[in-house]
Design a binder for these strands. Sequence first.
RNA 1: GGUGGGAUGGCAGAGCGGUCGAUUGCAUCGGACUUGAAAUCCGAAGGGGGUUCGCCUCCCUCCUGGGUUCGAAUCCCAGUCCCACCGCCA
Length: 422
Amino acid sequence: MIDPRFLRDNPEAVERAVRLKRESADVERILALDQRRRELVAGADERKARRKTESRRIAGIRKAGGDAAEAMEAVRQLGEEIRRLDAERAALEAELEQELLRLPNLPADDVPEGEGAADNREERRHGEARRFDFAPRNHQELGEALGILDLKAAARTSGSGFFFLLGAGARLERALIDFMIDLHVREHGYLEVQSPFLVRPDSCTGTGQLPKLADDMYRIDRDDLYLIPTAEVSLTNLYRERLLAAADLPVKLVGQSHCFRREAGSHGKETTGLQRVHQFQKVELVQLVRPEASAAALESLTRDAEAVLQRLELHYRVVTLCAGDLGFASAKTYDLEVWAPGLGRYLEVSSCSNFLDFQARRAGIRFRGEDRAVRFVHTLNGSGLALPRLMIALLETFQCADGTIDVPRALRPCLGGMERIG
RNA sequence: GGUGGGAUGGCAGAGCGGUCGAUUGCAUCGGACUUGAAAUCCGAAGGGGGUUCGCCUCCCUCCUGGGUUCGAAUCCCAGUCCCACCGCCA
């Protein structure tokens, strides 16, 4: 959420952000609502002050045995006025809140302007795309031939966009999760967390999925819960409505979860195999930091995610998302895109974002500094990494001419020493 | 699903119609003492809003929302959540 006071002082900056992010919001109207709200508050406050002093005076009169009937009647009427003003204010505030929740975060200054993926800025590349002396197959062909992936059975069981992993396929995914969590815990200093997959609507509002992305999430209507689209939701909300001590920061969490996405409106495109599915596992990194530390934290969190790809000897690139491609809640995002030679394209395996105080304000995550002042923390998160697309890159990159798969060295210990699949 | 108990400042925990925004303890911060620290002593300090150059003042806030009352942390109603026990169950 945008600080209402910032909005009041910098409406043009917010309007620009809305435009750059291709959102729609009526800033004028929000300002008018806010103005009216403050008028109502002032009116009610003045009457409440009078009621208080009058009530005390009445207490004095009665204690002295006097007749306070007239004053009591006056205060009663004051009470009616207050009730009316407060009711109007409450309705207005609810409306204002809804509007504020629909305002996107402002893109950071160093985020390029632009419409979509084509305008993203490539920051760096790591490694090189592997060259083949045979025609590389895609992961679906490889996986089905090896009997470790079954999409048809999943379609019968659950519908399109689901998959079965079998044997070494399932084992590989489990090993990768272990590998990644261990790396982040032992070498990057994260605390391992296992978090809920079902969350309340408020938690989704906290991280910014609601209200805008309601259609992209699965909802359990009967219990008013949402299936998380990412562990970001539950991990970040671990500290919702809490006041932390300065010494508690930074908080660095790593958690594995299943992620559930309806993928409404993304039918048809780039859906071969495991590229875009309704349910998948992901290892997620979340950090809560002091405001002044968030820019550096985004860099280090991104490096933490990159370390996974480097150890697995995969070719990837890092891009900075342009404003038009940036998520609703994010101020700045780096995408990690891994090379999938069978598909012949880069796949987004991680999105590392700095939300500044946008999520913290919505979720009520604050800290008390050494100066005793209370401020909102800054939140960040990034995939570290998403499993299906990581598996795609591994299978396609390390395939052999005979359709078997070499296991990268770093992963072998997690697979009981297995060197080859197939 | 059933029954009972509870929700108060960072935490613990009093208060149960009238200077209560709230006693107290722990934690925190400042000071004294000390070579330094601990201990001890003294002092400060909840959060939000409005207004203001800023402060003071002001308003709200004792789970949430209604109600009773001149006046509610305190009384009434509804809801939410938490805990315990029972039942069911991975």
